[in-house]
């Protein structure tokens, strides 16, 4: 069966990868490129642990073929922090105690980043709705929602200072 050579940008760096047709983006990230921060929780588009940004929009990376990502730009959890400085969503989720086992956290952070990008002032209801595809079994979600709201506020005050 056919292999495809694709070129794409992951966390700001170009990668060229040979992938078989049936390889998902998640498999490619984890098994080919060792971006193991992105997690496999169900492989069925239900749990959201594998969420990454594809051209700026969150997707379940288990629900997209690697070959479909030719020319795409991917951001994984490893790409959120810049030069060791955490993204506001990362810092806020630590500060609010929104991390427990940490397995859903990468997907949650990506969903949160995408939400704030499209809606800089999300309400708690909007945050909850944006997270409905990120199952978390530890936290009960409340601290995650608080953290995202706080992250949006922090980002705004950061922007105001610049």
């Amino acid at each position: 069966m056919a292999n495809h050579r694709i070129t794409l940008k992951i966390n700001g760096e170009y990668e060229q990868v040979d992938v078989p047709s049936q390889m998902t983006l998640l498999q490619m990230l984890r098994d080919k490129l060792a971006f193991t921060g992105t997690k496999n929780g169900c492989n069925a588009g239900e749990c959201g642990a594998c969420t990454v940004l594809l051209n700026g929009e969150p997707v379940n990376s288990c629900m997209i073929l690697a070959v479909e990502c030719q020319g795409a730009e991917i951001v994984t959890v490893e790409g959120l922090a810049q030069d060791g400085v955490l993204d506001p969503v990362q810092q806020a989720i630590i500060d609010h105690g929104g991390v427990q086992c940490g397995f859903c956290t990468p997907g949650v952070l990506i969903s949160a980043r995408a939400l704030i990008n499209r809606n800089p002032h999300p309400t708690p209801d909007e945050i909850s709705e944006a997270l409905v595809g990120n199952l978390c079994r530890c936290t009960g979600y409340l601290r995650i929602v608080d953290a995202i709201q706080d992250a949006a506020a922090r980002q705004e005050s950061l922007a105001a200072r610049l």
């Binding site: 629900m63 944006a130 595809g133 990120n134």
Partner: peptide, 9 residues
């Protein structure tokens, strides 16, 4: 329908 990230696809 499902979740935001699923609706991206």
């Amino acid at each position: 329908v499902a979740s935001y990230q699923l609706r991206t696809r």
